[in-house]
């Protein structure tokens, strides 16, 4: 290969490297910041009340974090592709009620089969979202806001005001909801397994990277020959499936399921993802950041009552965190734009 080109450094090359490093540092700082906040919060709360770090209390936190974590994984996939799935909590409710009904009506049914019913319900709901958004070209916000009401309405229709209580469910199913391995709840382990799988998929597989590409610049993705509709459909099906799995775990953990299971949870999930550094307009962020966000929000919800903080302030703290996270994103973007402008001016 005898290509003769002048050995030239790109103009402003060093500055650019510097900027890349700065951006990198900010993003890593984001993860680091979440960890620091977590540690600070846990330490303070523990100092105020040593029972906060008792085995039982930790298990409670892990149990409540498990569901948020699970759904945050699916939400991350959707948000990275510049979408959103507001229907997850309704899907969770539908799946929880469906699973519990099947188990209550057919006491002899093996638990894994019942779980499969719940997961299937979730996948079907996700497919509905995906088809409407990817092929019907309906904005994700509107489409999933619609299915939020539709799916929840379906639960109310099926439940009709009734509830399924723990007594109607098989023993083995309920035990699973609180069972532990080496002191760690099964539910949390399942969530972690899903987290690792989705993390690996988003980072190291073409379809996962395609989601980032779509969220980053949809037109460029089209020009690069990325099959946009099928990728988006896939993301919504996964989000629905995980919400369905969440429904099964919800039923196992709480034992009592009525039509309002998981009501309002979708906003907690979106909050966890955003606080975890997944850009709400797509293209960047990782599922591990989202997991940290989920963990932080769960710990806040558990720690502030221990510290005797007024419930109003609990909500305000979560709100402030979300705004801070988004402000940080904007700041990084503006900084970059400004330094680019300056560089261009130098060149002229």
């Amino acid at each position: 290969m005898t290509v003769t080109t002048r050995p030239s450094t790109p103009p402003g090359g060093r500055q650019q490297e510097g900027r890349a490093a700065l951006l990198d540092a900010v993003l890593r700082f984001r993860a680091l910041g979440l960890v620091v906040a977590l540690v600070l919060l846990v330490t303070t709360t523990w100092l105020a009340n040593s029972r906060f770090l008792s085995a039982q209390s930790i298990r409670d936190i892990l149990l409540s974090a498990a569901l948020t974590l699970l759904l945050a994984c699916g939400m991350t996939m959707v948000v990275v592709g510049r979408g959103i799935d507001l229907s997850v909590a309704s899907v969770l409710g539908l799946s929880a009620f469906g699973t519990a009904t099947v188990l209550a009506d057919h006491p002899g049914l093996p638990v894994p089969l019942a779980a499969l019913v719940g997961v299937g319900i979730g996948a079907a709901c996700g497919a509905v979202n995906g088809v409407v958004i990817a092929y019907g070209r309906v904005p994700a916000l509107v489409a999933t806001l619609g299915t939020l009401y539709v799916f929840r309405g379906l639960v109310y229709f099926l439940a009709g005001g009734s509830r399924i209580s723990a007594g109607e469910l098989p023993r083995g199913f309920l035990d699973f909801g609180t069972a532990r391995v080496l002191g760690i709840p099964w539910l949390f382990l399942i969530a972690v397994a899903v987290l690792l799988t989705v993390g690996e998929f988003l980072r190291r597989h073409r379809a996962g990277r395609d989601l980032y590409a779509i969220g980053s610049h949809e037109e460029a993705a089209r020009l690069a020959g990325i099959p946009i509709p099928s990728r988006l459909l896939g993301a919504y099906v996964v989000s629905g499936t995980l919400a369905g799995l969440g429904g099964v775990l919800y039923a196992a953990r709480y034992g009592t399921v009525d039509a309002s299971a998981g009501y309002g949870m979708e906003l907690d999930i979106v909050a966890a993802v955003v606080v975890g550094g997944v850009a709400i307009f797509g293209g960047s962020g990782s599922v591990f950041g989202a997991a940290l966000g989920a963990l932080l929000l769960t710990v806040i919800n558990n720690a502030l009552p221990v510290l005797g903080v007024d419930p109003f302030w609990q909500r305000a703290v979560v709100g402030a965190l979300i705004i801070a996270a988004i402000a940080l994103d904007r700041l990084v973007a503006l900084r970059l734009a400004a330094s680019l402008r300056r560089r261009d001016a130098d060149v002229h």
Partner: peptide, 24 residues
């Protein structure tokens, strides 16, 4: 038409990244 959030290498190989074992 680049993907601003992806690395330079990923921009070059978008949609046809070299794959190793297990499709990674």
């Amino acid at each position: 038409a680049l993907f601003p959030d992806l690395s330079v290498a990923e921009n070059v190989f978008a949609g046809r990244q070299p794959r190793g074992r297990f499709g990674r």
